[in-house]
Design a protein around this nucleic acid. Sequence first.
DNA 1: CAGTATCCTTAGGGATACTG
DNA 2: CAGTATCCCTAAGGATACTG
Lengths: 144, 144
Amino acid sequence: MEPTNDMILDIRKDPYNYVMRVVFCRWKPFILQAMDTDEVTNFSRFIKQLPITQKVLSQNLKALEQDGLVVRTVIPDTPPRTEYRLTDRGRSLIPLLDQVYAWGWNVMKEENMPIDALGEMWHGYRKKEDDLMLHPYKKRRELP
Amino acid sequence: MEPTNDMILDIRKDPYNYVMRVVFCRWKPFILQAMDTDEVTNFSRFIKQLPITQKVLSQNLKALEQDGLVVRTVIPDTPPRTEYRLTDRGRSLIPLLDQVYAWGWNVMKEENMPIDALGEMWHGYRKKEDDLMLHPYKKRRELP
DNA sequence: CAGTATCCTTAGGGATACTG
DNA sequence: CAGTATCCCTAAGGATACTG
């Protein structure tokens, strides 16, 4: 086949670009991770765990739902509850996220960069303290 | 340990955030991938392969160099040449990038989304056509 | 509890032109 | 060949307030 004069990567059709748009946006790894840890969770629990605003959380959850990584279930109760959980596709991402975290963790260690302790607990790089994991609070305390 | 009243994730110290900043920015996976494919490469070759402007390429290469993923070598010749290649750390990222690509590729297939052919060749999802791989051109032709 | 609605800011990228 | 220099623009996030 002759090399023709119009060859170039079309980024909009590239898987890298897709994954960056769908997964690697600011808060999404954290949101996905939280749902992996908690299995089922809800809006205000995310808000307690992450320093994210309601608006941005809402946007991100909608996008994740649209991209098929998350299911939102409304339970007709009084007052109605809303549950969020990972889809199979969302769950299929967790091993990859773990490896991404691990790569970053190792590099940050090599560079002596400070690493967030709560994240380390979530990922098993630091002994989990159940009360902290179960009762996350809005403000942050320094850990050893 | 008592749950104290100030617990929260500090995103600036989190590995996810680090990796998103250092690796998963728009063009960086492509740039890294190109350097894995080519072993040694140079500025204008990137420009031929990717639909990126010189300014943005320059910015990205500088950042990658600063973050220790890429080495830049100037060879005092006439005119002087500049070579770019991956560091060990950069190379350690390739398996991860491959998995990211693979995850995205599979999802896009499931969703019947169009997938860029040149990327597929680079990643071995499509038979490599050496002339195209070796002589990438600026504009794009549709592949079957 | 589970969100909307507004307003504002900024980093990152794109376009284009120029340089040694 | 290997970049700088400008100008511009928009998407994504942050702050704050309000709702059923």
